[in-house]
């Protein structure tokens, strides 16, 4: 039996082994009650956000001044805002904004740019390493929130103009979808979010690179991209997952802060930060507290589950924490 297993170390078996690492980690996550609870809450919130037009009973811009500022009721579970728009609908659309920003920023920033830069820096070393790490260190030495604010506020107008020109060609209204806001915001956040991931991957690669299987792959003539993505990357994915799940809350928080300050998402596109800003005054709290409390509670639940999930994922996926 044992001999049989040893004698067939085919490619299929290695795949099985690498898959079983994921299976083990994921299984470990599912065994934790907190992990499951967080995952389900996030799936529900993200699902609602993505399917916003289907799930919501109203449109986020349906105004009806005769029912403005009503408290929670059966037809409007979270009440209505000062223009008579359904709060729940607007919150779900606000979640859609959060979903888009977190996914786009993490995929482009941390996953695409961060991992690639980290792999390059760690695997090639020398001047490529120095260049990437120095650039990253300089970006991480900035107080990022100031620069994100200023980049967004200056870059948005030219980008909008540029998109309008495209609109003339394709004859389709892109700007009113809020795409420009999403794009500019994600870009600005990406500039400052890639380096943490790059540094992590670089450190991991420095360890993994010295392993014999990398040397073996090189000796049979595997190309560098193949070695990087097929042999090195799968072995550094654990910490990567942990970092991504820990970064979710930060990215979501940044978007909400920027929109709160009036620089991120622009009305009429709904955003939780924007709703909090519109209603974030003492007079609203005194007369219609539900206008402020529902968006704020949604946001708190979201950030709280992100943080808990980050911890749970860390316990499950981090090889050192076992």
């Amino acid at each position: 039996m044992l001999l049989n297993e040893v004698e067939q170390p085919g490619l299929g078996e290695r795949d099985q082994v690498s898959r079983s690492y994921w299976a083990i980690s994921f299984h470990r996550l599912l065994r934790k009650k907190i992990g499951v609870a967080c995952l389900s809450i996030i799936v529900v919130m993200y699902g609602a956000g993505i399917l916003a037009p289907v799930v919501t009973p109203y449109d986020y811009n349906d105004q009806n001044l005769s029912i403005a500022k009503q408290g929670p009721s059966i037809t409007h579970p979270f009440g209505t805002d000062r223009l008579g728009r359904d709060q729940m609908t607007r919150i779900i659309y606000g979640l859609r904004t959060t979903v888009i920003i977190t996914i786009v920023t993490l995929v482009t920033g941390s996953l695409a740019i961060g991992i690639t830069m980290g792999l390059l820096a760690g695997y090639f070393g020398k001047y490529i390493d120095t260049l990437i790490m120095r650039v990253g260190e300089v970006t991480s030495a900035f107080p990022e929130i100031f620069l994100v604010l200023i980049i967004i506020s200056t870059v948005k107008a030219p980008v909008t103009k540029w998109v309008r020109e495209i609109e003339d060609v394709v004859n389709f209204d892109i700007v009113s979808l809020g795409v420009v806001d999403y794009l500019v915001l994600s870009m600005a956040l990406t500039i400052f979010s890639w380096f943490g991931m790059a540094r992590l991957v670089r450190g991991q690669v420095l360890q993994v690179r010295e392993n014999q299987y990398v040397e073996a792959a090189r000796s049979i003539g595997a190309t560098t991209p193949r070695i990087l993505f097929r042999h090195v990357l799968p072995n550094v994915m654990g910490p990567v997952i942990v970092t991504v799940s820990a970064g979710l809350a930060a990215v979501a928080g940044s978007e909400i802060l920027l929109s709160f300050l009036g620089i991120g998402i622009q009305p009429p596109t709904p955003s939780l930060g924007l709703m909090i800003f519109e209603n974030g005054s003492i007079s609203v709290l005194r007369s219609n507290p539900h206008l402020l409390l529902f968006p704020v509670l949604t946001l708190s639940v979201l950030l709280f589950t992100f943080n808990l999930l980050g911890d749970a994922v860390n316990d499950a996926f981090n090889p050192r924490a076992r």
């Binding site: 974030g280 507290p289 946001l299 708190s300 709280f304 943080n307």
Partner: peptide, 12 residues
């Protein structure tokens, strides 16, 4: 709890 609750909630 204190770490996860955003200032957006505590302030109001």
């Amino acid at each position: 709890l204190g770490q996860s609750i955003p200032v957006f909630l505590t302030a109001p």
